[in-house]
Design a protein around this nucleic acid. Structure first.
Lengths: 149, 149
DNA sequence: CGATTATCGTATGGTAGCGAACGAATTGAC
DNA sequence: GTCAATTCGTTCGCTACCATACGATAATCG
């Protein structure tokens, strides 16, 4: 967004947006036959790899706000891919488990790691490290400014 | 998202997301007193710097889909910040102009360039260039894969 | 123990983004 | 000149994200 602005630094933000949305668009496209969104895929992925989990842990791992995750879970429950129960422990928490339909769907979904390989696989290790460092420090600075005046 | 996944390359995507949303969140926070979203700000910014513009050009400059821009314009028109007219030329196109209220609001909004300065200002030029190159090539590869099978 | 504080999930309302389908207008091919 | 293809904007339905406010449950402090 706004490459033509005064400082060339703005273009970092522009490419950050482009890259983020291009990745999401590709995931969404490949998941469309399964009627699944990219973030919904991440939730299933987490449950497959970590087993039944509490909503709170899932939100922290995927860095999603409670409200955001709540909506995504509601969608997955509506599609009968995930079940939301109480495990008898902390009554505030909800335990999420894959349903049989959810597991069956997951087995039908092809591997999506080619997306990350295609995007970053051929890039030099040192350049990747630099990119991560730049994005990380920029993010930290932005978050420091947030609500800190 | 998903830092704990198998390949470390995944974390580039995670930081891309983090950085993008951190920047947007900061813009949104600073614009909240003016009841303006970050993308709405970009539209006003474009009109201020380029004068009355056709919706099509604005969409291309900001890289927004027609449908996305249409919604944003509708919001700005509802707030009486932007007016949508026909300029007598191509009858399919709509000319966008800032209203008096839009110009008045723009004058009240503080400069937001500090956001980009804070995020990327202190980063080494060479590292910035590397980051842009990595993000650009990743984006291009992703877009090549999109709908090309 | 009781009252305050913190945490978890939900609900609401908003912005931002995309795909698909549509009508209207323009352009191009023949 | 007519008909097909393209372009422009809108609308609809959807995902995803956040802030805010709320109720319910835990944890803590007195």
């Amino acid at each position: 967004m706004c490459d033509q602005a005064d400082t060339k630094n703005l273009s970092v933000g522009a490419w950050t947006k482009r890259c983020y949305f291009a990745g999401r668009a590709l995931m969404d496209e490949r998941l469309r036959p399964f009627d699944l969104g990219s973030t919904q895929w991440y939730v299933l992925w987490y449950l497959v790899n970590n087993g039944p989990s509490v909503q709170r842990d899932l939100g922290r791992a995927l860095e999603l706000e409670r409200a955001t995750l709540s909506g995504i879970i509601a969608t997955l429950v509506r599609k009968d891919l995930v079940a939301q129960t109480s495990d008898g422990g902390d009554q505030r928490q909800r335990l999420l488990t894959l349903t049989a339909a959810g597991e069956a769907l997951w087995r039908r979904i092809p591997d999506l790691s080619f997306i990350h390989d295609a995007a970053f696989g051929r890039i030099d290790e040192a350049d990747l490290a630099t990119t991560i460092r730049v994005l990380k420090s920029a993010t930290e600075r932005l978050q420091t400014l947030l609500r800190k005046d």
